[in-house]
Design a protein around this nucleic acid. Structure first.
Length: 859
RNA sequence: GGGUGGUUAGCUCAGUGGUAGAGCGCCUCGUUUACACCGAGGAUGUCGGGGGUUCGAAACCCUCACCGCCCA
């Protein structure tokens, strides 16, 4: 313990303290969790940013919230582990490296698989993971000793282990299906990697067949008609019933195709007859399976027409559409056209290319039982979703899930551990196993989200039964944006429950919203409204950015962000800095015990009471993940209660040199405030606290608990009175045009408990307490403040003020009277409400009398 | 098409039955022994429209309009 305090610089410069403090924390190892500790664990695994990524404002929000929780729990005495790491981000990363190759005129095929993957690793070592350094700027208290990467050796073992386990239980299978195919990335995509957009297309009605034996089908994809295997109608459609079972001639390729009946056809859509292109549409695929319709492939992997034996071969699918329609028009087969026709079209979430449904042999996870378990864990309360309003969205998804296509035709990722024998034998090779001689491995890799789904335990060392797994699994809280609820959260639930014998990967899922621009618009490069968190950190400090983001984070809700808001948070930091300087100048201290309550002034009692209330309210809000409200509470305590009132009301006492108790109280308040604020604003609180107390660090200091003995409603009421008196007199001075610095004679005619603080009030109000002849007065309820304006009162201003007050009071009186004269109200309203209204009636009646008398006296 | 969230001060948003709030912005005054990144004072709302429930509705119910998101 040291009572020698260092000095605080006159101005707060975030950049001067942040780097050194973070280094100090790392050197001290405060963030390194101990698996052998006897403390109760608190675990968060970071949503791993893409290795290609930079810290964007969404990460800053996500990580601020996680750091808040981690730091609070650490101070509360938990063995806190916040585990950092990165995701290998299959397609995204491969695209980055391919782009670099393209600049040299090369493709990955020029290098070959092995060389290419080596190149990606090199890139990863050089420029991947910039975000890790950026996380340090933000102040993240992550345990760097446990940093993980989804392609790490151990995490890859986890992938092999779970793949084999799923396969052995029949939950992974290979099948030929219609999958989402990106003709640019040349890979399969899962359903959620497809984004639906409303595109302007065309809707054309084409006559198949001739004369009696003809039928008109409506389609948005005329170019695929060469792959048609049938025409389908609804079985009960009277228009077509007679044609079911017959055949029509398919134009362009002159092939006879059957007319089939299927419930899936909506008779009200288009002409009620649809073409069935089994190899190029998922719905058509389903119907084709039911009716034995042949699969006719007419496009290659690039989305180029191929194998139709027509003039259209070699045309891109979109060129082909135009050409086919033109040709049909020429043939007189276009019955109707609608253009533009706005409809939902799938796009690759990575490159925005229009997705092509493609018949292809891929690996799938059979999700039914896994998804059921994932849903049940939330349904039966083992896992909570915060805010719970978002739970239905989760159920909706896990309860209606299609099998998950997990193979990707990429080179960067976990290679599928399946080997094929010479006679198409299939062997899954688990960890430490070897494929038989002569077998070849499947060339594909797994969907990135396959390994991400293992993150909460693969990062802890699973499948080995490590001390970390034992200590830190299941994790406590998962904090992430609602936008990856499906991509990631649901899959971690499925795999976690499966791999960990039914133990879900986390207790609570905390979902936050997206950061938007100051007008609430989505940030995007094309809009040009993207902001860079690092610029803000440079300009305003990490604490200011963090506080702004936390303060804007209402559960599950998006937040708007403007530079002005961050400047406001910086101002708050500066305010704390200056208040601490002031406190130190005036002898605030943490030395010795807090004086007993009886010896304290009402002002001291009041601030301790407010501190106690704030402590419990703030802690409870943070524990409920109500970051915005928590920040609001602490902000107003610090700025309003502490700076605007307590420090001001104490100035006179400090100036008088007789304030030992207040010095200790103020020291306690600051000490507590810094502890409370530390999770949100770690840098400035650390700097202020260590300087002020002379102690080593806040990071592992104890979290404050509210002292209920400090709650003092009497002191709160009294200080409330003082505040009212001060505000009213200030207003009077202002209305009367008295300069703020001008001292005027004044005196308080008030009950003893208020009069006791006459000198404190006089100090603030620039009143001289001396004998004088009053020329004006201000009345606040039963309290009267007499003043000498040494001249005439500005009667016009004063009348205006009083008349305005009178109108307000009369309005309030009327409201109260109406209520009290209402029989229904008197009969049914709760007694306490009636009592309150009655009191209001008395008060407003008194106010009106007082104001009326003052107005009369002004004449 | 099916869900779902929203509509409150100029802007961004809190507020789940008892006299409408915050931050920023705006107006006036101010070099008062922390802070002009500040202080003091002030202005600003038929709480989207309509109907209902209730003694009492921004809040609960119905309905309409508009905006957004998710899924197909």
């Amino acid at each position: 313990m040291s009572s020698d305090k260092r000095e605080l610089a006159a101005a707060f410069t975030p950049s001067a303290i942040e780097g050194p403090l973070y280094k100090k924390w790392l050197d001290a190892g405060y963030f390194t969790a101990d698996a052998n500790s006897s403390k109760e664990p608190f675990t968060i695994v970071i949503p791993p940013p893409n290795v290609t990524g930079n810290l964007h404002i969404g990460h800053a929000l996500d990580q601020t919230l996680q750091d808040c929780l981690t730091r609070m729990k650490r101070m509360q005495g938990f063995e806190a582990l916040w585990l950092p790491g990165m995701d290998h981000a299959g397609i995204a990363t491969q695209n980055v490296v391919e782009k670099q190759l393209a600049q040299k005129g090369l493709t990955r095929h020029d290098l070959g698989r092995e060389e290419f993957v080596k190149k990606v690793w090199e890139w990863k070592a050089e420029s991947g993971g910039q975000i890790l350094g950026q996380m340090k700027r933000l102040g993240d208290s992550v345990d760097w000793s446990r940093e993980a990467f989804t392609m790490d050796e151990n995490l890859s073992q986890a992938v092999l282990t779970i793949f084999k386990k799923l396969f052995d239980q029949g939950l992974i299978y290979r099948a030929e299906r219609i999958i989402n195919w990106c003709p640019r990335c040349l890979t399969a995509l899962s359903d959620i990697e497809v984004e639906h957009q409303d595109d302007a297309g065309e809707f054309v009605s084409v006559r198949y067949g001739d004369g009696e034996q003809s039928i008109v089908v409506a389609t948005t994809r005329a170019e695929t008609m060469m792959g048609d295997g049938a025409v389908a109608v609804h079985p009960d459609d009277p228009r077509y019933k007679h044609m079911i079972g017959t055949e029509v001639m398919l134009p362009l390729v002159n092939r006879l195709i059957p007319i089939i009946a299927d419930e899936l056809v909506d008779p009200d859509f288009g002409t009620g007859a649809v073409k069935v292109t089994a190899a190029h549409d998922p719905n058509d695929f389903e119907m084709a399976m039911r009716h034995g319709v042949p699969f006719v492939v007419i496009m290659n992997e690039h989305g180029v027409m191929d194998g139709t034996g027509t003039e259209f071969d070699g045309l891109d699918r979109f060129e082909a559409r135009v050409a086919v329609v033109a040709k049909l028009k020429e043939m007189g087969r276009i019955v109707a056209e609608k253009r533009p026709y706005i409809h939902a079209v799938g796009h690759c979430s990575r490159c925005d290319t229009t997705v092509e449904p493609r018949l292809s042999k891929q690996w799938f996870v059979k999700v039914e039982t896994l998804a059921k378990a994932a849903g049940d864990a939330v349904r039966d309360g083992r896992v909570k979703i915060e805010p719970e309003e978002l739970a239905p969205r989760y159920f909706d998804w896990v309860d209606n899930l299609n099998d998950w296509c997990i193979s990707r035709q990429l080179w960067w990722g976990h290679r599928i551990p399946v080997w094929y024998g010479p006679n198409d034998e299939v062997v899954v090779v688990g960890p430490g196993e070897k494929a038989p001689d002569g077998y070849t491995q499947d060339p594909d890799v797994l969907d990135t989200w396959f390994s991400s789904a293992l993150w909460p335990f693969s990062t802890l060392g699973w499948p080995n039964n490590t001390a970390d797994v034992k200590k830190f699994y299941p994790t406590s809280v998962l904090v992430t944006g609602y936008d990856i609820l499906f991509f990631w959260v649901a899959r971690m639930m499925m795999f976690g429950l499966f791999a960990m014998d039914g133990v879900p990967p986390f207790h609570t899922i905390v979902l936050h919203g997206l950061v938007r621009d100051q007008y609430g618009k989505k940030m995007s490069k094309s809009r040009g409204n993207v902001v860079d968190p690092l610029e803000f950190i440079d300009k305003y400090g990490a604490d200011a950015l963090r506080f702004t983001l936390a303060r804007g984070s209402n559960p599950g809700k998006d937040q708007a962000l403007a530079e002005d808001w961050i400047a406001g948070s910086r101002n708050f930091a500066t305010k704390l800095w200056n208040a601490t300087r002031f406190a130190m100048m005036n002898g605030a201290t943490v030395q010795g015990p807090l004086p007993s309550t009886e010896t304290l002034s009402d002002i001291d009692k009041w601030v301790l009471s407010r501190l106690s209330e704030t402590t419990s309210e703030y802690t409870a809000l943070l524990e409920r993940y109500e970051f915005a409200r928590a920040c609001e509470v602490i902000y107003h305590f610090a700025w309003d209660d502490l700076c605007d009132w307590y420090l001001e009301l104490s100035k006179e006492a400090f100036a008088s040199g007789n304030a030992a108790a207040s010095q200790r109280v103020l020291g306690h308040v600051l000490d507590t405030l810094f502890r409370l604020l530390h999770p949100v604003m770690p840098f400035i609180t650390e700097e202020l606290w260590t300087t002020f107390t002379g102690q080593e660090t806040l990071v592992i200091a104890q979290w404050p608990t509210a002292d209920s003995a400090h709650i003092n409603k009497k002191a709160e009421t009294l200080v409330g009175e003082l505040q009212k008196v001060i505000t009213e007199v200030r207003r009077f001075r202002n209305d009367q045009g008295v300069k703020p610095s001008q001292k005027i004679p004044g005196r308080f005619i008030a009950p003893a408990d208020v009069s006791a603080y006459a000198s404190a009030m006089a100090f603030l109000l620039k009143l001289e307490l001396k004998d004088f002849t009053p020329s004006a007065s201000v009345e606040i309820g039963a309290i009267k403040v007499e003043l000498d304006l040494s001249g005439t009162v500005d009667v016009v201003a004063e009348r205006a003020r009083l008349e305005k007050d009178l109108v307000t009071a009369q309005k309030d009186l009327k409201t109260a009277e109406v209520k009290l004269n209402n029989e229904g109200f008197m009969a049914k309203a709760p007694a306490e409400v009636v009592k309150e209204i009655k009191e209001r009636l008395v008060v407003t009646t008194g106010d009106i009398e007082r104001i009326t008398a003052q107005l009369a006296a002004l004449k």
